[in-house]
Design a protein around this nucleic acid. Structure first.
Length: 506
RNA sequence: GGCGUCAUGGUGUAACUGGUUAACACGCCGCCCUCUCAAGGCGGAGAGUACGGGUUCGAUCCCCGUUGACGCUACCA
C-alpha cells in the first residue's frame, strides 16, 4: 500500500509548477527554494513547469515574471519552458494532446468515466446537499451510464467532463507516505470523483500534474501542505495508469501574522513587490530558508572554526550555505509566520554588509535607476520651480510609510465608512485592470459612475491613498510609474490599517 | 458540517530524537557610545514546551484523549 521503493534508484528529479495567474508568489519561491536545494544536494535536476490549464485566470505577462523573480532569487532551473529539456514541452497548454490520450486510456480501462451534467446542474446539486447539511460531493449519477446512453449524449453533442472513478469496495481507502509525516490514510467515501478533464478539453491540475510528473520522471513531489487532501486522488491516478508513485513531501504553509494562510490582503506576497520595494534577493532567500527550519544548529566545532564570525548570526546564511547544510528532513511542520519585521531586519543586515560601492550600485539598479527617474521626471517638470522641489512632489514614490489622515482622504460629502467601502471597490477594479493609463482610466471612471462618485472625488481618494496628499503629479501616470504591485499593496495596507483603526475606536 | 494536518516565549528557530537553570535570533525595555537617528556594545523582561492522562527512575521528545489553529471540501491551482 505504501510507495514503491524503486524510485530511490532513479536519478533525482524535482519540480515546481506555478500557475501564471498573477504576480509571482512568495510561496512559489519558498517551495522553489526547497526543491532547488533538494536537487542541488543530490545531483538531481530541478524542473520548472508552467501549469497554465486555467484559461479563465490566465495572465499573459505572468510567466515571464515568474522566470524573472526566480532568477532574481538565484533559483535557477535545469529544464523549463525557456530552456527546453528532454521531457518537454514544459508548458501544460502545449501538452493538451498528451492529456487527451491519457484520458482515453483511463476511459478504456474503466478507471474514469464521462459525466454529462452542466455546471448549473452540479451547482444545484451542491446547493441541495449544503441545504441538507450533507458534504457537497458529486453524487456519481453518471458513474455507470450504459454505453447506449453515452452514445446518445455524445451524438447530441452534449458537453462532458471526465471524472476519476474512485474505487468502491475493497480496499475502501487509499494510503500514501508523506516523507515528513508518515503514512496518511483517506477513506474512499471521503474522496470525490474528481474532474480530470474539463468540458473545454483542458485537464484539471490533478490529471495534468500526475501525467506530467510521470512523463517528466519526477522522483520527489515537494509541494505545499494544501495538497495533502488531494494526494489520494493523485495516488489513485498513478495506480489507474499503472505507474510508479513518487515520494511526497508536503511543506508547511507560510502564514500571515494571524496564522491564516498567507494572503495578499494581509501581507505583501508578490515577489515583484519585494524587489521593487528594495529587498535584496540574498535577504529574501535567507529569510525563506528560515521558514520551517531545516538548517542544523551550529555545532561547537563550526563556531570554533570561524572565530571571527559573530556567533549570534546563525540566522544569516547564503544559498550556497543552504546547499551545504540544509536538510529537508529537519523541516518543522507548524506553519511559519512570514514576519516582515524579521525580514526587514535581515535585509538591513545585508544592506549594511554591502561595500559602499555595491550599496550605491544597488540603489542605482532599483529605486534610483535611470529608467525609474526617466519615467518620473516628466510628471514633475511643469510642477516645480526649482530642481530642489523634486522631492516635495515625488516623496511618495520613494517612501514606504504613506498613510493619509482622515481629513485628507475622506471627501466632504462622504462618511469614512462610505469612503473606505468605495476604496475597497477601487482596489477590486485595480486588481483586475491592465496597468496602463488607457486601461485604468475607463475602469476607474466606470466604477465611479456605478457608485455615483464624481471623477474628482474618485481620483482624489486614490491620490490620497497613493501619495498621502491631495496634491500630486497626475494620478494615473503616478500609479503606472509606481507599478501595479506596489500600488495595490499600498491600497491594501491602507484598507487594513483603516479597518483596524475603526475597530479600536469602537 | 465532513476529512486531513499541525501545536516550544509576541515572531522565526534550537535542544545528542528520553536526562539542559529549555538555548539563539527578531521584536520589546533599560544602560553605554553619540550633535540626531540608526548601527554597535552591555544588560533585562518574557515560555516550563496548548491542555489532561498515561509509559518510564526520568519526558519538549514515545502513546492516548481533549482543545485550538490551519488546510481541503470547484469543470482554481
Amino acid at each position: 500500500m505504501t510507495n514503491s521503493t524503486s524510485t530511490t534508484e532513479a536519478p533525482i528529479r524535482v519540480r515546481i509548477a506555478p500557475s501564471p495567474t498573477g504576480d509571482p508568489h512568495v510561496g512559489t519561491a519558498y517551495i522553489g527554494l526547497i526543491n532547488y536545494l533538494y536537487a542541488r544536494q543530490r545531483n538531481g535536476k530541478f524542473v520548472l513547469r508552467i501549469e497554465d490549464t486555467d484559461r479563465a485566470r490566465f495572465v499573459a505577462t505572468s510567466e515571464q515574471e515568474i522566470f524573472n523573480s526566480l532568477r532574481w532569487l538565484g533559483l535557477t532551473w535545469d529544464e523549463g519552458p525557456d530552456l527546453g529539456g528532454p521531457y518537454g514541452p514544459y508548458r501544460q497548454s502545449e501538452r493538451t494532446e498528451i492529456y487527451r490520450e491519457h484520458v482515453e486510456l483511463l476511459l478504456t480501462n474503466g478507471t474514469a468515466y464521462r459525466s454529462f451534467e452542466t455546471p448549473e446542474e452540479l451547482e444545484a446539486l451542491r446547493q441541495r446537499q449544503i441545504a441538507a447539511k450533507l458534504p457537497p460531493r458529486y453524487d456519481g449519477a453518471h458513474r455507470e451510464l450504459s454505453q447506449a446512453q453515452i452514445d446518445a449524449y455524445l451524438a447530441e453533442g452534449r458537453a462532458y467532463t471526465v471524472r476519476l472513478k474512485v474505487p468502491a469496495g475493497d480496499p475502501a481507502f487509499t494510503e500514501f507516505r508523506d516523507e515528513l509525516r508518515g503514512v496518511i490514510r483517506f477513506e474512499h467515501s471521503n474522496v470525490d470523483d474528481q474532474v480530470l478533464m474539463k468540458s473545454d478539453g483542458f485537464p484539471t491540475y490533478h490529471l495534468a500534474n500526475v501525467v506530467d510528473d510521470h512523463l517528466m520522471r519526477i522522483t520527489d513531489v515537494i509541494r505545499a501542505e494544501e495538497w495533502i487532501s488531494s494526494t489520494p486522488k493523485h495516488v489513485l491516478l498513478y495506480k489507474a495508469f499503472g505507474w510508479e508513485i513518487p515520494r511526497f513531501w508536503h511543506m508547511p504553509l507560510l502564514r500571515n501574522l494571524d496564522k491564516s494562510k498567507i494572503s495578499k490582503r494581509k501581507n505583501p506576497v508578490s515577489l515583484i513587490y519585494y524587489r521593487q520595494a528594495g529587498f535584496l534577493p540574498e535577504a529574501m532567500i535567507n529569510f525563506l530558508g528560515l521558514m520551517g527550519g531545516g538548517m542544523p544548529a551550529p555545532t561547537t566545532e563550526s563556531t570554533l572554526a570561524q572565530p571571527a564570525a559573530k556567533q549570534s548570526e546563525t540566522d544569516i546564511f547564503t544559498l550556497p550555505d543552504m546547499v551545504a547544510r540544509f536538510d529537508v528532513k529537519n523541516i518543522r511542520l507548524g506553519g511559519p509566520v512570514f514576519d516582515l519585521t524579521k525580514l526587514k531586519w535581515l535585509n538591513g543586515e545585508y544592506i549594511r554588509a554591502l561595500t559602499p560601492e555595491s550599496f550605491y550600485a544597488a540603489l542605482r539598479e532599483t529605486i534610483l535607476s535611470d529608467a525609474y527617474l526617466q519615467q518620473i521626471a516628466p510628471l514633475v517638470q511643469t510642477r516645480i520651480e526649482t530642481l530642489g522641489e523634486f522631492g516635495n512632489l515625488t516623496h511618495f514614490l520613494f517612501a514606504d510609510d504613506i498613510m493619509p489622515p482622515a481629513e485628507v482622504f475622506v471627501p466632504k460629502k462622504s462618511t469614512p465608512e462610505e469612503t473606505l467601502a468605495f476604496a475597497a471597490e477601487q482596489l477590486t477594479v485595480l486588481e483586475a485592470t491592465d496597468w496602463t493609463h488607457e486601461a485604468l482610466e475607463p475602469a476607474l471612471k466606470k466604477l465611479g459612475e456605478e457608485k455615483q462618485w464624481s471623477v474628482k472625488e474618485n481620483f482624489m481618494l486614490l491620490r490620497a491613498i497613493l501619495t498621502g496628499s491631495t496634491m500630486s503629479p497626475p494620478l494615473l501616470e503616478s500609479m503606472v510609474v509606481f507599478g501595479k504591485s506596489r500600488t495595490l499593496d499600498r491600497v491594501r495596507r491602507f484598507l487594513e490599517t483603516q479597518k483596524k483603526l475603526a475597530q479600536t475606536k469602537k
